[in-house]
Design a protein around this nucleic acid. Structure first.
Lengths: 226, 226
DNA sequence: CGTCATACCACCCAAATGGGTGAGTGGATT
DNA sequence: AATCCACTCACCCATTTGGGTGGTATGACG
């Protein structure tokens, strides 16, 4: 991170410019103060609402955006989503007081690149800002834990259920949204045979519909949409 | 090697006991050496294969397990999965040379609690071990970035499609695996009405089945299974 | 005031789905 | 030889589903 080409050339890109979105004035000043503490980071502007942020921040073109998740009117998540459309390359770090699962995942889906608890120490804030600029995804440990846990959930059941090779294959196509007919033609089987496997999959997984099967046991992540 | 119960006082739980799984002897010794460098962490044993680990580690009952992901025979992922069944409370941190997406997610699904690149510095290793014991989920930044990115994927399309309140509600239940009948009773509507919304959702999302709708636009993560 | 979007419901029809039974092949185990 | 299991397929039946068309009521917007 210290690409300091020292000597005679201009040290142009040395200061990281941060924009802050936070509705509570007092807090807002505090954070801005903390940020300006660091010599290599500065706060280029603050917004008190998502609407204001969506309008003004693109003009500031900051290097990073710090976003409170609880905002009056447009939520921090919605705002994140909009800003990501306007400034796809600008990392957004969410600030929050509580570590609510629902909010975390919605924010990450909206395109947030980091997720910090407000109680984080100034040093950690600085580390997070630099990290996110380096392609990292800074998260408070409590958050990281939740994110990681969200992966575990689906597996334990699948681990205990032993599907045959064919069954697994059918499930794979199933979780890509194919119909029985399409699956049949993909793996060169009779539709009836596909249905037979479907039934046995349902029994093993204790579900009653393809949607349930996909939801609980789909290989979701690795598979990429067509 | 450092269980020195000295004097009269009981400083019992001061040392963190680590087990190491790594097939390359040389690397194994190196890592063990690094670990024993720290006064508050010790390496209680090493295994050269997944099979050995599954058998011996439960007896050692370490505080943390460090696991190489590339192992001959049983993979580190499979091994993680087994050890998690035997020692559900013992955090497992994966060590890897490369940051392959597929492996990361498979490991996390298997129950891994942290994911470090082998090139991590000793200081970071120590921080990670302590972090994971404190309920964190230590990850190298490159890894964290990939994990976070895996959440983004589904959203962009949804952002451009404007569903009405009811439609969104129906989609929510849809992506929990409910049938039309169940959705209807949940939101107190006629099944026919649910079907009407379904149809309009399909049109807006350009899909032809509930499974497709759920796959591409389901709020997947936040929803918890019944 | 007309138009439009949304919410709500109903009926029709064809296809897809879920659930069951049965049955033949071939490989592996016992 | 007997058994078990994975794999393959077919037929039956009731229900669900996808895809139309239609209708009423409400409120917003011009």
């Amino acid at each position: 991170m210290k690409t300091t080409l020292l000597g005679t050339e201009p040290p142009v890109k040395s200061v990281t410019r941060v924009a802050l979105v936070e509705d509570q004035k007092e807090l807002c000043r505090q954070w801005a103060g903390i940020i300006d503490t660091f010599t290599d980071i500065e706060c280029v502007g603050t917004c008190a609402s998502g609407e204001e942020a969506a309008e003004r921040i693109p003009q500031w073109a900051p290097d990073v955006i710090l976003m409170d998740i609880r905002l009056p009117g447009m939520s921090g998540i919605e705002c994140t989503s909009r800003l990501k459309e306007l400034l796809p390359a600008t990392p957004i770090v969410i600030l929050t007081v509580l570590d609510d699962d629902e909010l975390i995942f919605r924010a990450l889906e909206a395109g947030a690149d980091g997720y910090l608890l407000k109680r984080s120490k100034p040093v950690d804030l600085r580390a997070a800002l630099l990290d996110v600029l380096n392609g990292g995804a800074p998260m408070s440990s409590a958050i990281a834990r939740r994110v990681v846990c969200s992966f575990k959930k689906t597996s334990p059941r699948l681990a205990h259920v032993q599907l045959s090779a064919r069954e697994a294959e059918v499930l794979k196509f199933l979780s890509r949204g194919f119909s029985n007919k399409e699956i049949a033609s993909q793996i060169e089987l009779s539709v009836e045979t596909v249905r037979t496997y479907l039934k046995s999959i349902y029994k093993k997984l204790h579900v009653r519909s393809r949607t349930e099967a996909v939801l609980h046991y789909g290989s979701s992540r690795p598979g990429s949409p067509p």
